[in-house]
């Protein structure tokens, strides 16, 4: 049955809708000129490195077709790597190589491909096959993340990242998205991925939803979703808070992955993070936005990433 909530009840629950996000969160806080910095992953990378924010290491960039012939020699030094389009969208065009078998390249599935296949992939990337609007693009070669095993039982395919929403420098809400067989390995909630809301104070799972309805176990692996506890939580929250400094985006989505040895790494920044995080958390964003605004009007607002992260962990989780 189609059940509708009254707008008044949603407002009382503190839910932020798309219109309000677009006008009050994005248009008023995110200067248009900063968008290219987050839409182009190469620029994001440069920005993060300048500010010393942990991110997967950039090994190299292919900008022109002519450079492809230098690739085999260059790649010799890196047994494993990830190749991404700099302006890709929706996770398209990512090639992961985990090792070598003679001159062939080994994919995570164990399948081997010849260099010609890698070259073709680079060529497609450069000509804009994967980029938004088909713009000519660059191919980034990144160090592979050695994923922390914390999520091993919780994902159908790929490794989930942690999305933290940062409002004016204050990390205010977090979740992780777990792909399922139903979502076809994609981390999109409306396609059937499971969203797990994470307590901003502790990194413990609060609740999990699939298709807007609460779930307790992962539909494919059967793992208990409520027992997720993300390690190094304070580091993750501080890392997210730092990203505000670099990007100057008042409403920012920070995607973090956990490396087994390097700790939290920023994978991507997003200038238009979505609202599904509210459903995953079972909370609305509005009271947290209001609390941050109220704090910023006072004299004693913390002005360091550590201070802001601390304040968020202390105060926001209760709202």
């Amino acid at each position: 049955m189609l059940r509708l909530a009254s707008p008044l009840r949603l407002k009382r629950a503190g839910i932020v809708g798309m219109n309000r996000r677009n006008v009050e969160l994005i248009a008023e806080n995110n200067p248009r000129s900063m968008f290219p910095l987050v839409d182009d992953k190469l620029k994001t990378k440069a920005l993060l490195r300048k500010d010393g924010i942990a991110a997967p290491r950039l090994l190299g960039v292919v900008r022109q077709t002519g450079q492809i012939k230098e690739l085999p020699a260059f790649l010799k030094a890196f047994p494993s790597f990830v190749m991404k389009p700099s302006q890709g969208s929706g996770g398209k065009g990512i090639l992961v190589i985990t090792g070598r078998d003679g001159d062939s390249y080994v994919k995570p599935s164990g399948k081997t491909v010849p260099f010609a296949e890698v070259a073709r992939h680079v060529n497609n990337t450069l000509s804009g096959l994967f980029s938004l609007g088909g713009k000519p693009d660059a191919a980034m070669i990144e160090a592979m993340i050695d994923f922390d095993p914390v999520f091993d039982d919780y994902s159908f395919e790929g490794v989930p990242d942690i999305r933290v929403i940062v409002y004016k420098g204050f990390p205010m809400m977090a979740m992780t998205r777990l792909s399922t067989a139903q979502s076809d390995g994609k981390a999109n909630l409306h396609q059937g991925a499971v969203g797990v809301g994470l307590d901003i104070a502790t990194g413990l799972a609060m609740r999990a939803v699939q298709f807007n309805r609460p779930v307790h176990t992962h539909p494919d692996t059967g793992a208990d979703l409520t027992s997720i506890a993300v390690p190094l939580w304070r580091d993750i929250v501080e890392l997210a808070a730092q990203c505000y400094q670099s990007s100057q985006l008042g409403y920012l989505g920070v995607d973090v992955v956990l490396d087994r040895t390097q700790g939290p790494q920023v994978l991507e920044l997003n200038a238009r993070p979505g609202l599904a995080i509210q459903v995953a958390n079972g909370r609305g964003m509005a009271p947290r936005v209001a609390a941050i605004e109220a704090l910023l009007r006072t004299e004693g607002a913390p002005n360091t990433p550590t201070g802001r992260a601390q304040w968020s962990m202390d105060v926001l989780a209760k709202l």
Binding site: R3, A5, L10, I15
Partner: peptide, 21 residues
């Protein structure tokens, strides 16, 4: 263009959040 209220579809989308409260 300045309307910041909910969309009709969001009354459905966020319905679980409202009923839990």
């Amino acid at each position: 263009g300045q309307y910041t209220g909910f969309r009709l579809s969001e009354l459905r989308r966020f319905e679980p959040l409202a009923s839990e409260k």
